[in-house]
Design a protein around this nucleic acid. Structure first.
Length: 284
DNA sequence: TACCAGGGCCTTT
DNA sequence: AAAGGCCATGGT
């Protein structure tokens, strides 16, 4: 288990970590999270746990603005999955040239431990959609139905709040036909038909089945929610980019030996093919 | 089976 | 500048 050095400085907490170990740009903009934006200063700002977080990354540290030790330990250390040994995972990929290369390129990505309901709703919105628009939809949703935090920021709405809404109330958020999916999902969570704590305790197959009971949760959305919202590292979302990776490098299927951390491998491969693929388009 | 349902980004023309 | 592909799911 890695041990990260921290110190209090000025108004915040400094975490001694390199971009190779945690790369904020790659981690916050690789499609797992939609609520962080890059400021003109290069800093990142976003909301999680109903709190605004602002971060500054340099070559050897990350500054968590306005954060004390207690909040860091309670929320952010876990959020960025700091206790996990990613170096060990990357080492385990050494025998596979493609995975090794992707891990060297994208190894600063960590799997965020995001809030479950927010992740479920976010990936319902993500289907058949692109990242700028997904971010816009979620921002409008929070602004309309979430509690104000500070400044321009609003918390993610609760299941109860969304469960009380009609499709008409969601008009104007540009959700399209996904509006009824959100309502069905929120109602299931609010009335207990879908118990997210219970899903968290299930093994992968059962968790997958439970999530699939929600309208609009198909195979792709389910894998994303399992990986990004429930931290089930064996979940393996396959989209058009991953299909290309699999066709090119793993025509006989993704190797069984990496199944336990397939989700981490997926993130490395996904980022690598998008940024580095010789043909940086999934078509063809 | 094939097509459609919002809508806007992105690449190609 | 304009056109058309694309996205993931459920319903017809």
């Amino acid at each position: 288990m890695p041990v990260w050095k921290t110190e209090l400085r000025g108004d915040g907490l400094v975490l001694q970590i390199t971009p190779r170990e945690l790369n904020l740009a790659d981690t916050l903009d690789c499609g797992q999270s939609f609520r962080f934006r890059r400021l003109e200063t290069g800093e990142f700002e976003g909301v999680a746990f109903g709190q605004v977080l602002r971060l500054t990354q340099t070559a050897d540290e990350i500054l968590f603005h306005g954060i004390g030790r207690k909040e860091f330990e309670q929320y952010w250390s876990s959020y960025f999955d700091l206790p996990a040994d990613y170096e060990g995972v990357k080492s385990s990929y050494a025998g596979d040239e493609t995975l090794r290369t992707a891990a060297e390129f994208a190894g600063g990505i960590r799997l965020l431990r995001q809030e479950r309901f927010e992740t479920l709703i976010s990936f319902l919105i993500s289907q058949n959609n692109n990242i700028p628009r997904i971010k816009g939809c979620i921002e409008k949703l929070c602004r309309a139905f979430g509690e104000p935090v500070t400044g321009e920021w609003y918390a993610f709405p609760t299941p109860e709040r969304l469960a009380s809404l009609s499709r008409e109330a969601l008009a104007g958020l540009s959700l399209g036909y996904r509006d009824s999916y959100l309502i069905d999902c929120a109602r299931r969570v609010a009335d207990g038909r879908l118990d997210l704590d219970a899903v968290d305790r299930m093994e992968l197959g059962a968790a997958r089945e439970a999530l699939r009971t929600v309208q609009g949760v198909g195979p792709k959305v389910a894998e994303c929610v399992l990986l990004f919202g429930f931290h089930k590292l064996a979940a393996f979302p396959v989209d058009t980019w991953m299909r290309k990776v699999l066709a090119n490098y793993y025509p006989r299927g993704f190797p069984e030996q990496y199944r336990e951390t397939a989700g981490i491998a997926q993130q490395y491969l996904f980022h690598y093919i998008r940024k580095c693929g010789e043909a940086s388009t999934p078509r063809g």
